[in-house]
Amino acid sequence: MLTHKEVLTRYLQNQRDALLWKVDGLDEYDLRRPLTPTGTNLLGLLKHLASIEYGYFGDVFGRPAPEPMPWMEDDAEDNADMFASADESAEGVIGFYHRACRHADETIAALDLDAEGFVPWWGPDRGHTTLQLLLVHMIAETARHAGHADIVREAIDGAAGLSARNGNLPPGDAGWWESHRDRLQSIAEQFRD
């Protein structure tokens, strides 16, 4: 039987893997394309999650990131952690994500679930926390952004689902999905004002 820590770590890793699948096989252009009105893009999601992995499993427990993150400084451009600048390569951002996850995993392995940390950006009233709470928080945060990545990737090339081996979607070819979408649109039309 798995320990509580092993269960939490497994769920976090599953979400990380789902996110990494969403960037697999795409070129620099598609990885950077802002496909929502707020500019959501795949490299930005990775950069953001890497930054917060370093924050929650690094800074909070006295293990700061071993590399600079100028986009997280107080004087950084708004939302700078949510996109890759022109001088940041896709390979560099993906590598940054892998390094942040390794750093986080080292912290997780070294501490007990009840290890205490302090999240300064949560403020003095909420900032005191434990490794267990932060694992749950990061699972939720990573799952949320993996969902964003799923939608962005589907908009790019139609790839959707949980992983390359498990789409976790009903079987259907392009025609079936088009028919399904059309049916949903016709239902929605019944509620148009």
Rank of each mutant, 00 (worst) to 15 (best):
V136F: 07
H145T: 09
W122R: 05
R126S: 11
A159W: 11
T142P: 10
P124N: 04
I187R: 13
D105K: 05
G123K: 02
D182E: 15
A188G: 14
T142Q: 08
A160Q: 10
R144H: 14
A109M: 01
H103A: 12
G161R: 02
P120N: 06
E116S: 14
R102W: 08
R144A: 08
G158K: 03
R183K: 08
S186D: 15
L135E: 01
C101R: 06
H148R: 10
Q132E: 14
E178Y: 10
D150W: 09
S186Q: 15
W121P: 00
A100T: 11
E106N: 04
D105G: 08
T107N: 03
E154S: 11
H148W: 11
L134H: 04
R165M: 05
L134I: 01
D112K: 08
L131M: 13
W176E: 01
A104I: 02
D112L: 04
H137M: 01
H128A: 13
A174R: 09
W121V: 06
G123S: 01
S179E: 13
N168I: 00
E189Q: 15
E116A: 14
I108L: 05
H128Y: 13
D157M: 06
E116F: 09
G161H: 07
A146T: 05
G161N: 03
A160T: 06
W121Y: 12
C101A: 09
A164F: 04
G161V: 06
R165Q: 11
A115F: 08
P170N: 00
D114I: 09
R144K: 14
H145A: 07
L111Q: 07
L135W: 04
M138H: 00
I187F: 15
A109Y: 00
R181S: 06
A164R: 05
D173N: 14
Y97A: 04
R153V: 05
E154K: 08
E189K: 11
A109V: 00
A104F: 02
H137V: 01
G117S: 06
R99K: 12
W176N: 00
A146I: 06
A174F: 09
L111P: 04
D114C: 04
D182V: 12
H148Y: 14
H137D: 00
G161I: 04
R183L: 13
D114E: 15
N166W: 08
L131W: 04
G158C: 07
A146C: 04
E141M: 05
R183H: 15
F118Y: 15
G127H: 11
L134R: 03
A164S: 01
A109H: 01
H128I: 03
E141Q: 14
I151D: 01
D105Y: 02
G161F: 06
A159G: 06
T130L: 07
E178T: 13
G158Q: 06
